[in-house]
Simulated scan of single mutants.
Amino acid sequence: MSAALSMYLPVSIIGFAADEYGPGILALVSSALFVPAYLGAAMVTDSTLSSAAVVAVLCVSFALIGTATSCLFFCAMLTCAKLYPHSKLKSISAPVTAFGISTLWQSQLLAYIQKDSTINLPLTFNTYAILYTLTGIMAYFAARVVNRPDPKKSDTEIQNDDQEEIVIDPKMALVQALTTSARPWLLFLALLLTAGPLEMFLNNVASLALTLGDGIDTAVDASLQIGLFATFSSSSRLLVGIITSLAGSWAPPPVILALTLLITALVHFLFAIFSASTAYSPSTWFATLSIVNGWTYGSVFSLFPMIVLDAFGLAIFGSLWGGMVAAPALGEVAYGFIYGKVYDNGAVDSVGVLGSWGKVAQFVVGQCYGQQCFQLTFVVTAISMLAGGLLVLYVWKKS
């Protein structure tokens, strides 16, 4: 929890720092946070401290790790955006894809180092301390080719009357964008409406899987669904960049995103209505939902920054996108609350559902079984996805 909160809360400050001082400084900050955090975690997990002290140190360590992760990610994204401003594939999709697949190769690295089924936490944390020391140094020197933004080059207007050059400061441009236009706020709302349901789904796959099948003996395999989600999420991050690069003006990012959200809304609605029917197995419905949600999740975090970059320019991209990243966190809380309320209300009727399955003896208090556990939730998320797509198209037309 501490890592998740610290990844979202300071992001607006991180984005502003990248715009103001250049992305290279974020690489140094990330190493300055990563290394002591992982070394501290390694020390306390192999110490004789009390449980309360260990938990306290780990909470602080993972809070630093969360902030360091955001710093390193923004360093990569801002550097790529400034190096390749005309290539969506290189500027946005490449760093977003790398971020998404980093856990895959790192887990394989740790498995190779440890070579047994027992997790050696001190070894794991010390390995990460060394890894991120090297990563931070490399990122800093890689980002040095990108200087602090020059407003004379990126934000210059020529007066029509006397051709006098007016230089617009990035901070002034940010204030102007936030106070004179509704577009940043509408994009924030659209991101909340679209990323929130996807975060909710990912956080509740395990409990949702138990509601289908007969809820017990033939429940949906939650680990398989998470694997499908992760695979299609990682794939879409890269493929969306390729598609936008090839499509050009024929299918700009807002159109691709709106179409993706429309399809996702349709799948959510069909899942809510027909997932408990006998026409297809519950596993088939759930797998379809996991695949579509995974693809959309990766697409959202690739296409939204492209839209922000196109709409507001490079000079304030870090600040604006950094502020918008808080939307998924808020959406996760809001839609998680909706899921929880619907699930708890549905649990009241679960005895009757288990009776129809012949499983009354296996009833667990608080566990929900049947379509009533999620139907209303996915009707709401379908409407939310549709509304988010329409907002994206509206902002695009106003740009």
Rank of each mutant, 00 (worst) to 15 (best):
Gly298Trp: 03
Ser87Gly: 13
Leu262Arg: 01
Ser302Thr: 04
Glu164Arg: 00
Leu64Lys: 01
Pro10Leu: 02
Pro151His: 13
Phe374Gly: 12
Arg144Tyr: 05
Ser223Cys: 00
Ile101Leu: 07
Thr135Asn: 12
Thr103Gly: 15
Val379Arg: 13
Phe74Leu: 06
Gln375Glu: 04
Pro170Ser: 09
Val60Asn: 02
Trp321Cys: 00
Thr260Pro: 09
Ala56Val: 02
Val220Pro: 02
Gly215Trp: 07
Gly40Met: 04
Ser117Met: 13
Val333Thr: 11
Asp162Gln: 14
Leu246Thr: 09
Leu210Val: 05
Thr67Leu: 09
Val292Thr: 10
Val55Leu: 14
Ile119Glu: 15
Asp169Thr: 03
Cys80Glu: 02
Lys171Leu: 14
Asn120His: 14
Ala272His: 08
Phe304Gln: 06
Gln371Asn: 12
Ala311Asn: 13
Gly196Lys: 05
Gly389Arg: 05
Phe271Asp: 00
Leu5Asp: 01
Val54Leu: 07
Ala41Phe: 10
Ile65Tyr: 02
Ala37Glu: 04
Val220Ala: 11
Ser181Tyr: 09
Tyr112Ser: 01
Asp161Gln: 13
Ser275Val: 04
Thr288Ser: 05
Phe312Pro: 14
Asp221Tyr: 03
Cys75Phe: 00
Val364Cys: 05
Ser181Gly: 09
Asn203Thr: 07
Phe141Asp: 03
Leu89Thr: 00
Asp221Cys: 05
Gly322Phe: 10
Thr278Ala: 14
Ser319Arg: 07
Leu210Thr: 11
Gly40Phe: 03
Met385Thr: 10
Tyr21Trp: 15
Thr296Pro: 04
Ser6Pro: 00
Gly355Ile: 03
Gly100Ser: 11
Cys80Leu: 03
Thr156Lys: 13
Ile92Met: 04
Ala276His: 05
Ser30Arg: 15
Phe229Val: 02
Ser249Tyr: 07
Asn204Val: 02
Asp19Glu: 05
Gly318His: 08
Met324Leu: 14
Leu78Tyr: 09
Ile316Tyr: 10
Asn203His: 11
Leu33Cys: 15
Ala247Glu: 08
Leu309Thr: 01
Thr296Ser: 11
Phe271Arg: 05
Leu189Cys: 11
Ala3Thr: 06
Ala219Asn: 04
Pro36Lys: 08
Thr288His: 00
Gln114His: 07
Lys115Trp: 11
Gly355Asn: 12
Asp221Thr: 05
Asp214Asn: 10
Ile92Cys: 07
Tyr140Trp: 10
Pro122Asp: 07
Leu189Ser: 08
Gly227Val: 06
Val44Pro: 04
Tyr280Ala: 03
Ile166Cys: 05
Val325Tyr: 13
Val365Cys: 00
Phe232Tyr: 06
Tyr132Thr: 02
Ile273Cys: 00
Ala326Val: 10
Phe229Thr: 06
Phe271Trp: 01
Leu239Asn: 01
Ser87Glu: 06
Gly323Tyr: 07
Leu314Ser: 15
Met306Leu: 06
Leu192Cys: 01
Leu303Gln: 12
Asn293His: 03
Ile119Asp: 12
Ala63Thr: 03
His268Arg: 01
Tyr8Glu: 08
Ile166Pro: 04
Ser299Cys: 09
Ile216Trp: 04
Thr278Gln: 13
Gly370Trp: 01
Thr218Met: 09
Ala94Asp: 01
Pro197Gly: 04
Leu239Cys: 03
Phe337Gln: 05
Phe74Arg: 00
Ala17Phe: 02
Val392Ala: 13
Ser236Pro: 06
Gly213Ala: 11
Phe374Val: 14
Val55Thr: 10
